[in-house]
Amino acid sequence: MASANGLVIAPGKEPLFSFGLISDVQYADILDGRSFYGVPRYYRHSIIVLQRAVERWNDHQKLKFAINLGDIVDGHCPKEQSLNTVKEVVGVFEKFRGPVYHLIGNHCLYNLPRSKLLPLLKIQSPDGHAYYDFSPVPDFRFVVLDGYDISAIGWPHDYPSTLEALKFLQEKNPNQDKNSPVGLVGLERRFLMFNGGIGKQQMEWLDGILQEATKLKQKVVVCCHLPLDPGASSKEALLWNYDEVMDVIHRYNCVKVCLGGHDHKGGHSVDSHGIHHRVLEAALECPPGTDAFGHVDVYDDRISLIGADRMESTDIYFNPQADL
């Protein structure tokens, strides 16, 4: 396992807590296919990856919770099967012996409206939004962002968030197909319909949460289905206003790690403020017999992601100059 800065882990040191981690299961009971870029996708095998993940997490016995970073059912799932398929995947997650914290992704929203999806995922957030926070121990806080707060998918057609998103896409993406990046240059390639943005209300909420975490001297892990740093992701997968979100995050020293999914190949970067960004490899793209999930051991000075098979293990040491 590679260390971010070459430090050696002291043997025998117990983590403060541990948790499971997986992203982009995108299960569907359909034949295997390929992504837009030609990458194989194993729709039926992905739920087997999830089943093995839950079994492994339960064998670990010391995991306090698990995080699903979004996209549990694929958009190619036949719509008449969407509800039962989402329930089937949620049922696998519920076999884990601890709480599971879910994020929503674009494929979740292709299948079900928020009104049906959020209760199944046990996400309780105001007005159909899907952002929230939790503290597994007093010294740490997890902040879950709703990357499709401003989005052309998932909300009713006449909803303010939908109208704002459509207006935004019309201004930013001249293509008739708003999922096409043709002609878009550099970071502009993120302005696609399968991405989304974070609205003013959620931004104010995030700022308030980080203020509170700073006062409580908590270390913060931010989770968003859409990546928040270009160094960890392809340009086409980024949150529309990732820069504005990071401007808020960079006002504080409490955020140590940002976790994301959506960009299936995975990635890792360290931004200008020393915050690590780790995008997870997709369970969907595991050939039969392989896996992509992990668990995370959390220490006072680092987190260690222990990945299975196709998920790369990562040690992330907190920047001591940015400590509270």
Rank of each mutant, 00 (worst) to 15 (best):
V137T: 15
R141W: 07
H102I: 01
V143P: 05
I104H: 10
Y131N: 01
G294R: 09
L109D: 12
L206M: 11
P138L: 08
E188H: 15
A292I: 03
G12S: 02
N195K: 00
L210P: 12
G289M: 05
G208A: 13
F17V: 05
A2K: 08
A152Q: 10
D149E: 12
I123D: 04
E188D: 15
M246G: 04
L226C: 00
D323V: 08
T85R: 01
F191Y: 15
V90H: 05
K200W: 11
V86D: 03
V39Y: 04
A283S: 14
Q170D: 15
P138T: 09
D59L: 13
H273I: 04
V90K: 04
E212Y: 09
Y242R: 02
F65Q: 11
I72V: 12
G267D: 07
I22Y: 08
F96P: 06
S234P: 00
G197S: 14
S82W: 00
H277S: 10
P126C: 02
P40Y: 02
F168Q: 03
K167Y: 15
I47R: 08
D263V: 00
S23P: 08
G261P: 11
P15W: 11
P78E: 04
E312G: 06
N68L: 02
I275C: 02
L121K: 06
N84G: 07
G274C: 06
D133C: 14
P136S: 11
S161Y: 13
V137A: 10
R44F: 04
L166Q: 14
E312P: 00
G91L: 03
D309Q: 09
K265D: 13
T314V: 15
D271Q: 07
G98V: 02
Y148N: 11
S304K: 13
V137H: 10
E80L: 08
F168M: 12
H157G: 10
T214W: 12
P227M: 02
K122G: 01
L83T: 03
G105K: 09
F194L: 11
V49N: 09
V248I: 15
P15R: 11
V49K: 13
V245I: 09
N253M: 02
H225R: 05
L163G: 13
L83Q: 05
A283M: 02
L50T: 06
V39M: 03
S313I: 04
W205D: 06
Y299E: 09
V86N: 00
V137F: 07
Y159F: 15
G197F: 07
D315A: 00
D315Q: 08
Q61A: 13
I72C: 10
L187S: 13
Y242H: 14
K172F: 03
P138G: 09
D243Y: 09
Y252C: 05
A283G: 10
Y110G: 00
G6Y: 07
V39C: 04
M1P: 09
D24Y: 01
R44N: 11
F168S: 10
P230R: 11
I30T: 07
G199V: 05
Y37L: 10
G289Q: 04
F19S: 10
Y43V: 00
D146S: 05
G267R: 03
H262R: 03
T162L: 12
A152L: 02
G147F: 14
I198Q: 02
F140N: 04
R251D: 07
S161R: 15
Q321E: 14
I67R: 08
R278K: 14
N106R: 01
D29A: 11
A165F: 06
W240R: 02
G199A: 06
A232N: 00
R114V: 11
D229L: 00
T214R: 10
P138R: 09
